[in-house]
Design a protein around this nucleic acid. Sequence first.
DNA 1: TGACGTCGGCTACCATACAAGTACGTCAGA
DNA 2: TCTGACGTACTTGTATGGTAGCCGACGTCA
Lengths: 249, 249
Amino acid sequence: MASSSGLHAARARGGNARQLVHELLRARIVGLELPPGAPLSENELAAELGVSRTPVRESLILLAEEGLVDVYPQLGTFVSRIRERDIASAQFVREALESAALRDSVERTDERDLLELRALLAAQADAERRADPETFFRLDEEFHARLMAAGGHPEAWSFVQHAKAHLDRARRLSLPLEHQLALLIRQHTDVVDAVERRDAAGADAALRGHLRQVFADVETVRTQHPELFADEDAPPRPRRGQRKRPTAG
Amino acid sequence: MASSSGLHAARARGGNARQLVHELLRARIVGLELPPGAPLSENELAAELGVSRTPVRESLILLAEEGLVDVYPQLGTFVSRIRERDIASAQFVREALESAALRDSVERTDERDLLELRALLAAQADAERRADPETFFRLDEEFHARLMAAGGHPEAWSFVQHAKAHLDRARRLSLPLEHQLALLIRQHTDVVDAVERRDAAGADAALRGHLRQVFADVETVRTQHPELFADEDAPPRPRRGQRKRPTAG
DNA sequence: TGACGTCGGCTACCATACAAGTACGTCAGA
DNA sequence: TCTGACGTACTTGTATGGTAGCCGACGTCA
């Protein structure tokens, strides 16, 4: 009910039901609140969110396009398991785009951009002191987006975001590791420092090192949580998970 | 009726109505059969294609996500005009991804990849001799996709394709220029030659030159067909075009 | 005991009905 | 002639009904 009224309120304020449901489900999936393999029923979601099946269905179609859910007609919709290829592809796309944008950042960045980036770094350090990975996650996203904007390519961020969703799902589990946040902030700082020095090669090296660090974290998570990943290449049968039937009998 | 029964037949063979409508509309938009600014009525399309509003609507949502149509609630859906920013963003994304993939191609490409690429070049030359820009367009797409696959990044092609749609809409008008096809083929050949020589810098330069040539063509089209482009940044009112009312009265 | 056929319940897909809102033609009035 | 209000016809957004198909459990038969 809380979700329902909350959505209703948001709907009165802002956008349409589809966008809200889409953002909500996306956040739940990327935040692993809806883990890979979880079944998503149009009916259940519609009932839970207090809307009809239509906006839910349209949201699921968009999520399917992003690769975050798999739709099996007449069978069900499931949060997609993390696939080796998706991860590799996402990493490639992200590195290519952010690196290319950074090249332009080194030339174009002005004082104002640097101030904003520094402010984000300070906020990240604050989140690290408070041991607040959720806030850090948000600030991390904002940092990378801001960096691309500084290079004059704010629109391209949506492509990175698209790819990043797959990485983030896995990465989120590795973030709480206490040493991680400080390390990532250090790497962020290195990038900004190099940009400020107008050191293109240094900035590129720092960024790629950072992104590959993230990539490595994913591999760590993989060994710790193999159930989130797809074992084989193409599991034709999603092996419908146990529906809600809590050992009743 | 032809469209309707054709879709019905395809539907019996293959995918669902949504995918078919999506692909059809996308092809019409990128091929300028549906020019920028054209109104798209869910009802009209549904009637024409012999399906209900639902799959049409879902297709339009996907096209809106790609930036190919603009949806104004309670007002109408229109083929998006070509925007300066979309073009620039698309060019940036494409260049970054294809260039990064090419870097890997130079290291990974084997004899088989080269043979396929050479075969595509030959087919392109054939299309040029027959003055068949449509076929060339398809082969061009296949060439670039194959090039990325040779670098080990076939999945990333979908990102390029996403961005490319905006460029293609404008570019299509420039292709029939008689000298163009030969020039593009020459540039393609230069890229493959450099890859075969394992000349990373040369390949990168050739590819970027090629992609920027394409970008320049867009500017040429812009001066010749300004009506396809969005004059201002954000036209809040789409100025609904005259509905079908052929001077009747 | 094990294999096979049937049936119930679930799914997504599609079609249709209703609601909310905008643009534009028409018409009354100054 | 010009201006402004109103009604109609259109739009997308949302809700709901109906259909085909798949899964899994149950009952039947060998």
